[in-house]
Every structure is written in C-alpha cells, then in structure tokens.
Deep mutational scan, measured.
Amino acid sequence: MSIQHFRVALIPFFAAFCLPVFAHPETLVKVKDAEDQLGARVGYIELDLNSGKILESFRPEERFPMMSTFKVLLCGAVLSRVDAGQEQLGRRIHYSQNDLVEYSPVTEKHLTDGMTVRELCSAAITMSDNTAANLLLTTIGGPKELTAFLHNMGDHVTRLDRWEPELNEAIPNDERDTTMPAAMATTLRKLLTGELLTLASRQQLIDWMEADKVAGPLLRSALPAGWFIADKSGAGERGSRGIIAALGPDGKPSRIVVIYTTGSQATMDERNRQIAEIGASLIKHW
C-alpha cells in the first residue's frame, strides 16, 4: 500500500482519535458579512469528516447552483462504474471539434489522439474542462443518470439537468442544476469515506481534487503551510461562485467545507476574496 493510499485508508482512524471539535460562531459572522459585502445569498456548511456531524452552517438547506462543483460527483459516478466493471479508466475516447464547448483548455489539445477516461476526469476536476465533463456525462448516460446515481446514494436534493455550459445559467428560483450545502457536503463525505467506492477509487477521487489547479484564489489562499486540501470550485452566471473541499491540518483532511453564493453584482475577484476570507476565519478558529 502506498503512503497516499495509507493516508486515505486511515482518515477515519486518525479522526477518531482527534480531540473533540467545537464550532466557532466567528466564522458564521464572516459568512454573514460576506453576504453584506456581496449583496447576495451565501450558503455555508462545515462537517466533521469522521462523524458527519454538522459543526457550523448557514442557509444549509437553500438551493444554490452547483456550477462546476458537480464534476466531482460526476467522476465519482464514473469511478463507481469502474468498480462495477462497467468502465475502464484506460479506455480512450475520441471526439471532434464539434464536441468542444466553451472553456476546454485540455480537451482542445487532444482532438487528434483523444483522451482516456482517467485523463478526462483529471481534466474535468483539476482544470474544470467543460468538454471533458460533457464527454464523461455521455459515458454514464447524461445528466439524468448522474441525478439517479445521487438518488441511489441517498441524495434526493442534488440534481443535474443540463450539460456544460448551460448548467451554469443560475436563474433565480430555478431548481435545475442545483444542490443544497448540506446535501453536497453529505454526498461528498460519502464519496470520500464511505463504502460506495473502493479504496482505490476513493484515493483516485481525492487525488484529482488535491491536484486542483484553478481554485488557488479561494480556500487555498488562506491555508497555512502543512495543511491538506482537496477541492473543486465552480463559477456561473449572475454572480455565482462555489467551492467544495476536504481539508485539515497535519497533512490530512478532517472536515468537509461547502460554500456557495449566487445573485451578486460583485466582480469575480471580490467573490473570490470573500470566500478566501471565510476560509481564513475557519482556519483561525479551527
């Protein structure tokens, strides 16, 4: 067993022997301040990774656009098919120029040779490549099948209805392509620590998230040296922004954090800054 596999296998073990965790309302004060600064709703939840206990939450059962955070769930569904012998990570998928959609920095470079399922998941999570996500959605049967996968996990809230990039439209009061912070946090925890996926697939999923290259201005910008984070960000229309993450000190994750916002007129930089400040408060009061 590799060191990384050992780390993920012992996530519940280490967490069980940690000192009790206590909620700190100071972080919620910052979440509410972010709402004021952005002029928009902000949803927040913080779960203990081992027990699933909610440590703090704000608007945990209000719907927010998922945006690209759905790509972690998508690759979880792909990995479940791999575990069941219905898919192979090494299978190569070929596609054409007509398949390319807006923001496809990886797939646009491989029109000639195609990409493997493993490479597509890596591109979808680490670079948020939209064509990679659409190609992977095709392998599982489309958005409705991802929703069905989530329902089978016990998540009857999260739903995907459309493809990239239309799913980022974020129309107010439109339930399409949305989740709730509580539902997303619980589902992410199941994917990373539950028995739904094999140990190898859980490790692969967290490795992809740990290698995320496009979430630097968010929670990662607030992390002290030595902290662990595996995350996936999302951005959408109407001032929408979000991030889902597993993080913790001492090089291992111990909490799940989900943050979503929508309806702001603020710039992307300002949305990023507010999420980073929430992260800084979380870490300060850990």
Rank of each mutant, 00 (worst) to 15 (best):
residue 183 A to M: 02
residue 107 T to V: 04
residue 271 R to H: 01
residue 37 Q to R: 06
residue 210 E to Y: 05
residue 270 E to S: 12
residue 67 M to H: 06
residue 34 A to L: 04
residue 147 T to Y: 02
residue 188 L to T: 13
residue 80 S to N: 11
residue 90 G to V: 02
residue 39 G to Y: 12
residue 64 F to S: 07
residue 171 I to L: 05
residue 216 G to L: 13
residue 96 S to E: 07
residue 81 R to T: 04
residue 140 I to L: 10
residue 250 D to M: 11
residue 145 E to L: 14
residue 184 M to E: 11
residue 40 A to Q: 08
residue 220 R to D: 10
residue 116 T to A: 05
residue 118 R to I: 01
residue 262 T to H: 12
residue 249 P to Y: 06
residue 59 R to N: 15
residue 90 G to D: 07
residue 159 R to H: 07
residue 45 I to Q: 14
residue 142 G to I: 00
residue 100 L to D: 04
residue 221 S to Q: 14
residue 187 T to R: 00
residue 252 K to A: 09
residue 58 F to M: 09
residue 72 V to D: 03
residue 216 G to W: 13
residue 144 K to M: 05
residue 170 A to P: 00
residue 143 P to E: 04
residue 177 D to T: 08
residue 242 G to T: 02
residue 222 A to M: 13
residue 31 V to D: 07
residue 184 M to A: 06
residue 117 V to Q: 07
residue 229 I to H: 10
residue 120 L to D: 06
residue 27 T to M: 11
residue 53 K to M: 13
residue 52 G to C: 01
residue 176 R to V: 01
residue 253 P to E: 07
residue 136 L to M: 05
residue 34 A to H: 09
residue 114 G to I: 14
residue 116 T to Y: 00
residue 282 L to I: 04
residue 138 T to Y: 12
residue 69 T to I: 14
residue 99 D to V: 09
residue 28 L to C: 05
residue 176 R to M: 00
residue 197 L to P: 12
residue 219 L to M: 13
residue 62 E to R: 06
residue 33 D to F: 14
residue 80 S to L: 14
residue 66 M to D: 06
residue 230 A to G: 13
residue 189 R to G: 14
residue 152 N to R: 10
residue 131 T to C: 02
residue 102 E to R: 00
residue 32 K to E: 06
residue 169 E to Q: 08
residue 270 E to Y: 15
residue 246 A to Y: 10
residue 264 S to Y: 02
residue 80 S to R: 14
residue 256 I to Y: 12
residue 142 G to L: 00
residue 254 S to Y: 01
residue 155 D to L: 11
residue 45 I to F: 12
residue 206 I to F: 01
residue 67 M to Q: 01
residue 64 F to M: 11
residue 33 D to I: 14
residue 283 I to W: 08
residue 68 S to W: 08
residue 80 S to E: 04
residue 169 E to W: 00
residue 244 I to G: 11
residue 37 Q to L: 11
residue 122 S to L: 12
residue 175 E to S: 04
residue 28 L to H: 09
residue 210 E to D: 13
residue 169 E to K: 04
residue 70 F to K: 00
residue 124 A to Q: 01
residue 87 E to H: 05
residue 101 V to T: 15
residue 224 P to K: 02
residue 99 D to I: 09
residue 261 T to H: 14
residue 257 V to N: 15
residue 62 E to T: 13
residue 244 I to P: 09
residue 89 L to Q: 06
residue 159 R to D: 15
residue 165 P to A: 05
residue 95 Y to W: 15
residue 276 A to E: 15
residue 30 K to E: 15
residue 144 K to P: 01
residue 105 P to K: 04
residue 280 A to D: 07
residue 253 P to V: 07
residue 108 E to H: 08
residue 174 D to Y: 05
residue 118 R to G: 05
residue 284 K to P: 05
residue 187 T to P: 13
residue 100 L to G: 07
residue 272 N to V: 07
residue 27 T to R: 07
residue 182 A to D: 12
residue 33 D to N: 13
residue 39 G to E: 09
residue 189 R to V: 15
residue 229 I to R: 12
residue 41 R to V: 08
residue 160 L to H: 06
residue 214 V to K: 15
residue 128 S to W: 03
residue 231 D to L: 14
residue 283 I to P: 11
residue 88 Q to A: 12
residue 145 E to R: 13
residue 116 T to H: 07
residue 212 D to G: 14
residue 162 R to W: 04
residue 225 A to R: 07
residue 284 K to S: 04
residue 111 L to I: 07
residue 150 L to A: 03
residue 239 G to A: 06
residue 252 K to P: 04
residue 115 M to T: 05
residue 41 R to D: 13
residue 136 L to R: 06
residue 212 D to Q: 06
residue 142 G to H: 00
residue 51 S to K: 02
residue 111 L to G: 04
residue 29 V to M: 15
residue 275 I to K: 13
residue 179 T to R: 13
residue 153 M to Y: 07
residue 108 E to V: 10
residue 50 N to T: 09
